[in-house]
Design a protein around this nucleic acid. Structure first.
Length: 913
RNA sequence: GCGCGAUUAGCUCAGUUGGUAGAGCACUUGCUCGACACGCAAGGGGUCACAAGUUCAAGUCUUGUAUCGCGCACCA
C-alpha cells in the first residue's frame, strides 16, 4: 500500500484552527497537572539552580491592558523556556492594594450614594475596600489565565495580607530605629483632590500655557538706589497670584548692585497689608524679570528653603482641599477654590492699581499621577526616608553588573536618578493602606515605632494614639520579591527561590519600584540583590503612536484581541514587535499575520499527522538522527536548519531578544519547513520506496516535534494541543501529557546536524525549481503545460541534481530534467543563471524572444553593477593589504562567479540576437 | 537647560562584533493539484534623513545639522 488512507485523519485536529476550541481545556489540564508549581525544598534537593520571576503586581483596581499583555507574555515565555530547560521555576503571582487608586474607587462608589468616607468612618471604609478587593481583585488574575500565563496560582499574594503587613512593619520599625525614617515639616507635593501627600516621583509634569503676573509692592520708605534714582515700589512676578496672600518677604540677589540699598528695608503687601522684609539670597536670578522675587514659604518649595535660611514666617493660606483659609485680613476670599481665588485676587489687584502687566508664560505644571489634579506644594508634617545611604550599595550593584538592566542604556537613567536621589515622602493621608506603626504619648511626648500595637505608653503609662497616616503603596511594593517568598521569616522559599532571576517591567516604574526594590533588598537582606536581570520592555502605544488611554477611548483591550485572534496569536504578534529599542505602535495587522501563522502551524501539523498513519513512525523522543549517512539531502537540509534554529532561539531567549526569536521561528516554520521541506516530502510520501517513506516520516515528525517545543514559550496553547496528537511509543507517555514538561531542544546536541553540503545542495535544487516556476509565470503557462529543464552544471552539481530528479520535477512540475557538465543551450529556450547553474527551459514556439531579452538585460545590468563593485574592491591595494584574508577570498569567489554569470548572460544575449 | 531614542520599500518595522539591503502588510500577475485561500507561486518597489570624518570598506563607528518622540530638572 503506497499511500496512507486520507480519511483516517486524527479527530483531534479539526481542519480549521480554532483557538477558542482548545484554550480553556488546555489551561484546565495544565492546572490539573500542577505544572506551574514547584516545591522549594524538593527542588533544592535536586541541586538545580532555580529560575524565578516575580510578577509586577497588578493593581486590584486594574484590568488587563496592552502593557500587561506584552509584559506577561515576556515573563511567561521566559518561565516556560526555563521550565523546559529543566530548571525548577516559580512565577510568583499577586496583586497590589494600590492605596490611592482603590480608595478613589471606593469613594466614587460612596459618592453615588451621596456619601463621603467620613460619613462611614475609617473602620467601615477599610471594610469596604476589602470588599472591593474581594469583588474585583481576581479579575486580572483570570485574565492572566486566559493568556495562558503559567504563574504559580497556588501561592497568590496580596500586599495587604497579614504576612505582608508583617514585612512592611518590620521594615518600617527597623528603618525608624536606625534613623533612616524621620518626621519633618516640609513642603511636599499635595493632591487637593486625594487630600494626601505624594512623593516627588508621583507627580507628572506637563507643559502648560500660563501667565506671569507682574505686581507692584509699595516700599515703605522710598529708597535711593546706587544709580541715583529713587525707588518707590518693587515689581515682582508670579505664576500663582493667589499665593501672594502668604508672602512674607521679597528677595534679591546679594550681588545685585541695583538693589543694594534695599536689603533690610520693608514693603507692604497689597490687599493684605503685611510688612515684607527685603532679603538677599543667592537663589534669586538677577537676570530673570526684575530680579526681585516674592517669597511665599508655605506654598513654594524654593521659597520654603529661602524662608528657612532667613527665619521667615510660614503663612499658610490654602486648606488641604485647595481653598483659601478663613482668616483675617483676607477672609473675603475664604472658601474660594485656588483658581477662583486667583481670579478674584487678580481683579482686586487690578482695581487697586497694583497689576503692572500680564505676560504669557509657558511652564511645567505638576499633576497627581492618580487623578491628574494639579498638585499643590504644601507645607505639612510628613514621614520621610533618608535615601542616600540606601542608594549607595544599589548603585554599586548595577555598576558592577550584579544587576543588569536591559536594554543597557536604562542603566544610566538609573544612575542619574540614584545619584541625585532625594528623601522619600512615605506618609499618605489615606485610610486604605499600611498604617504607620508609630505611636504617640500625649502625656510625655514619647514617640515610638512598634511591631505590635500599643495602647499604654511604656514610659509614663499614659494613653497613646497611633499615627493616622498610612504608607505610600510603593513602600510596600518595594518589598515584593522577598516578602512574597516569606521574608522576614526564614522560609524554604526564600532560601531556594531568592534572589529571583528576571524582572520584566515598564519603564515608568524604574524609579517608583525597581530602584526601590534593589535598595530595600540590599539593605534588609544583607546585601542580597532582588533579581539579576531587569527587562525594561517597550511601551505599547496605539497605531498613531499615542499613549493608550481607557478614558480617551484610544486603548485596545487584550481580551478583545484574544477573542478575535486567539491568545497564541496575540502573544506571538506582540513578541514579533519587541526589539529592545523601539516602542511599539500597536496595529492589529501583526496579529493577523500571527493568527495566519498559527493556522499554518496547525495545518502543517495536520499534514504530518495524516501522513504517518501507516504506523511506521511512532517516534520515540530519543529518535533524533545520529547518523546522517543514510538520509536524503532534503532531510539533511531541514535538520541542519533545525539545528540552526535551535541555536538562534535558545541564544535569543537567553539574551531577551524576543523579536529576533519570533522572526526566526516564523521564518523557519513557514518558509523552510512548510514551503520547501513539506513540499519535498509530498512526492516521497506517495512513492513506492517504503524505506524512504519511513525516513521522510521520521524526519517530518522529528522536526515538527522540535519546532513545537521551540515555539511553545510563545504559543503555549496551540503547541500543546498538537503535541498531544503526535505519535509516541509507550514509554514516552509521560512526555505526551504536555509539551510543558518536554525537554528543551539542546543546541549542543544538534551540532552534528549542521550540514553545509546539504544547504549548498538544496540551494541548487531550489534554483532549478524556481527557474521553472518563474518561466511558467512569465509566459502565463498553465500548470498542465509540460516543460523540461536542461541544466549546464559542474560535475558535482550535475550529479547532485540527477540524484534528486524526482524532487525537482515534482516541485517544478517538470516533465523531465537533464543535467550535465557542458550541456549546450537548446534552441528556443528560456535561460536562467542562478546558484552556479545555467538552467534552460525549452519553449519551442512559445518562446518570446523580446521577453527573454528584457529579462536577461535586466539581469545583466544588475550583475554588471555588482561585478564592477567587486572588481573595484579587488583592484584596491589597500583592500588587499588590510582586509581579512577570508574576506578577500570570499570576494574573489563572488567576483569570479559574477564574471561567469555575466559571460553566460552575454552569450545568451548574443544568441538571442 | 541636561540626557535618551528614532529617521531603512507606499505603511509598520527588522538588520547583534563594519564585508552583495530584509520581513509582514499593501500592490501586480497567475493558481480549487488531497495540510492550509488565515493558502500557493512568480514579480514590482529602497542614494538606508542630511553633511562631514574614521576605514581598504559605513545602514552599521565618530562629530555636526534637521525633524519627531520620550525622560529628568526647572527662574518667580
Amino acid at each position: 500500500m503506497a499511500n496512507p488512507p486520507h480519511d483516517t485523519m486524527p479527530p483531534t485536529l479539526s481542519s480549521q484552527y480554532d483557538p477558542h476550541a482548545i484554550e480553556q481545556m488546555l489551561f484546565d489540564s495544565w492546572m490539573a497537572g500542577h505544572y506551574f508549581e514547584q516545591d522549594a525544598a524538593e527542588s533544592k534537593a535536586t541541586g538545580q539552580a532555580s529560575y524565578v520571576v516575580s510578577i509586577p503586581p497588578p493593581n486590584v483596581t486594574g484590568s488587563l491592558h496592552m502593557g500587561h499583555a506584552l509584559n506577561n507574555t515576556i515573563q511567561d515565555a521566559l518561565i516556560r523556556y526555563h521550565r523546559m530547560a529543566g530548571r525548577p521555576t516559580r512565577w510568583v503571582l499577586g496583586t497590589d492594594h494600590a492605596g490611592i487608586a482603590t480608595q478613589n474607587k471606593v469613594e466614587q462608589k460612596l459618592a453615588k450614594e451621596g456619601k463621603t468616607r467620613f460619613d462611614v468612618g475609617r473602620d467601615r471604609f477599610i471594610e469596604l475596600c476589602w470588599e472591593w478587593r474581594d469583588e474585583y481583585g481576581s479579575t486580572i488574575v483570570e485574565q492572566l489565565k486566559r493568556m495562558g500565563c503559567s504563574c504559580d496560582y497556588t501561592h497568590e499574594w496580596f500586599t495587604m495580607d497579614e504576612h505582608y503587613q508583617k514585612a512592611v512593619r518590620t521594615t518600617f520599625v527597623e528603618w525608624f530605629e536606625r534613623g533612616l525614617i524621620y518626621r519633618g515639616n516640609r513642603i511636599i507635593n499635595w493632591c487637593p483632590r486625594c487630600t494626601t501627600a505624594l512623593s516627588d516621583i508621583e507627580v507628572e509634569h506637563e507643559d502648560a500655557d500660563g501667565s506671569l503676573w507682574h505686581i507692584r509692592y509699595e516700599l515703605d520708605e522710598p529708597t535711593t538706589l546706587p544709580d541715583g534714582t529713587t525707588m518707590t515700589h518693587a515689581v515682582v512676578a508670579t505664576t500663582r497670584p493667589e499665593t501672594m496672600l502668604g508672602d512674607v518677604a521679597i528677595a534679591v540677589h546679594p550681588s545685585d548692585k541695583r538693589y543694594k540699598g534695599l536689603v533690610g528695608t520693608t514693603a507692604t503687601l497689597p490687599l493684605v497689608g503685611r510688612k515684607l522684609t527685603i532679603v538677599a539670597d543667592e537663589y534669586v536670578d538677577p537676570e530673570f524679570g526684575t530680579g526681585m522675587v516674592k517669597i511665599t514659604p508655605a506654598h513654594d518649595a524654593n521659597d520654603f528653603e529661602i524662608g528657612e535660611r532667613h527665619q521667615l514666617e510660614q503663612v499658610k493660606v490654602l486648606t488641604d482641599t485647595g481653598t483659601i483659609v478663613d482668616e483675617e485680613p483676607y477672609a473675603a476670599y475664604a472658601g474660594l477654590d485656588r483658581y477662583e481665588a486667583r481670579k478674584a485676587i487678580v481683579r482686586d489687584l487690578e482695581a487697586g492699581g497694583y497689576l503692572v502687566e500680564i505676560e504669557e508664560h509657558a511652564h511645567a505644571v505638576g499633576h497627581c499621577y492618580r487623578c491628574h489634579t494639579i498638585i499643590e506644594p504644601y507645607l505639612s508634617e510628613q514621614w520621610f526616608v533618608d535615601m542616600k545611604p540606601l542608594a549607595a550599595p544599589a548603585i554599586e550593584a548595577v555598576r558592577d553588573g550584579r544587576v543588569k538592566i536591559h536594554p543597557q542604556r536604562w542603566e544610566q537613567v538609573y544612575f542619574h536618578w540614584m545619584e541625585n536621589i532625594r528623601d522619600w515622602c512615605i506618609s499618605r493621608q489615606l485610610w486604605w493602606g499600611h498604617r504607620i506603626p508609630v505611636f504617640y504619648c500625649d502625656a510625655c511626648d514619647e514617640m515610638m515605632a512598634s511591631m505590635t500595637d500599643i495602647t499604654v505608653c511604656p514610659k509614663c503609662d499614659g494613653p497613646v494614639r497611633q499615627d493616622e497616616d498610612v504608607l505610600d503603596t510603593w513602600f510596600s511594593s518595594q518589598l515584593w520579591p522577598f516578602a512574597t517568598l516569606g521574608w522576614p521569616d526564614d522560609t524554604p522559599e526564600l532560601d531556594y527561590f531568592y534572589p529571583t532571576s528576571t524582572l520584566s517591567t515598564a519603564r515608568d516604574i524604574l524609579f517608583l519600584w525597581v530602584a526601590r526594590m534593589i535598595m530595600s533588598s540590599m539593605d534588609l537582606l544583607d546585601g542580597k540583590i532582588p533579581f539579576s536581570d531587569v527587562i525594561i520592555h517597550p511601551t505599547v502605544f496605539n497605531k498613531e503612536g499615542k499613549r493608550m488611554s481607557k478614558s480617551l477611548g484610544t486603548g485596545v483591550d487584550p481580551l478583545d484581541l484574544m477573542a478575535d485572534y486567539g491568545a497564541d496569536a496575540m502573544r506571538f504578534g506582540l513578541m514579533l514587535q519587541v526589539t529592545g529599542v523601539q516602542d511599539l505602535k500597536f496595529d492589529d495587522e501583526k496579529l493577523l499575520s500571527s493568527r495566519n501563522f498559527a493556522n499554518k502551524i496547525w495545518n502543517a501539523s495536520r499534514f504530518v499527522l495524516m501522513n504517518i498513519e501507516d504506523g511506521a513512525s511512532a517516534l520515540p523522543d530519543s529518535a533524533h538522527p545520529t547518523s546522517l549517512a543514510n538520509l536524503s539531502i532534503a532531510d539533511r537540509w531541514i535538520l541542519s536548519r533545525l539545528a540552526n534554529l535551535t541555536e538562534t532561539v535558545t541564544r535569543g531567549l537567553e539574551a531577551f531578544q524576543f523579536g529576533e526569536v519570533a522572526r526566526a521561528l516564523y521564518e523557519f516554520f513557514w518558509s523552510e519547513f512548510c514551503d520547501w521541506y513539506i513540499e519535498f516530502a509530498k512526492g516521497r510520501l506517495q512513492g513506492d520506496d517504503s524505506a524512504d517513506r519511513a525516513q521522510v516520516q521520521q524526519t517530518l515528525v522529528f522536526v515538527l516535534d522540535n519546532a513545537l517545543r521551540l515555539l511553545h514559550p510563545f504559543m503555549p496553547f496551540l503547541t500543546d494541543e498538537i503535541w498531544k496528537t503526535l505519535p509516541r511509543e509507550a514509554h514516552d507517555e509521560a512526555l505526551a501529557q504536555s509539551i510543558m514538561v518536554a525537554p528543551w531542544p539542546n543546541a549542543a546536541e544538534f551540532t552534528h546536524l549542521i550540514d553545509p553540503d546539504a544547504e549548498h545542495a538544496i540551494e541548487r535544487i531550489k534554483a532549478v525549481v524556481t527557474a521553472a516556476r518563474a518561466v511558467r509565470a512569465r509566459y502565463g503557462l498553465s500548470p498542465r503545460t509540460e516543460l523540461t529543464a536542461m541544466v549546464n552544471a559542474s560535475k558535482t552539481d550535475a550529479e547532485l541534481l540527477g540524484k534528486n530528479t524526482a524532487l525537482i520535477t515534482s516541485l517544478g512540475r517538470l516533465e523531465s530534467l537533464a543535467a550535465y557538465e557542458g550541456l549546450e543551450k537548446p534552441a528556443q529556450a528560456s535561460v536562467t543563471v542562478a546558484a552556479g547553474l545555467e538552467i534552460y527551459i525549452p519553449l519551442d514556439a512559445l518562446v518570446d524572444f523580446d521577453a527573454e531579452r528584457t529579462k536577461l538585460e535586466k539581469e545583466r545590468t544588475k550583475t554588471a553593477t555588482d561585478l564592477e563593485r567587486y572588481e573595484r574592491k579587488l583592484a584596491n591595494e589597500g583592500f588587499l593589504a588590510k582586509a581579512a584574508p577570508e574576506i578577500i577570498e570570499k570576494d574573489r569567489a563572488i567576483a569570479a562567479e559574477l564574471t561567469e554569470v555575466l559571460t553566460r548572460i552575454d552569450e545568451q544575449l548574443t544568441e538571442l540576437g
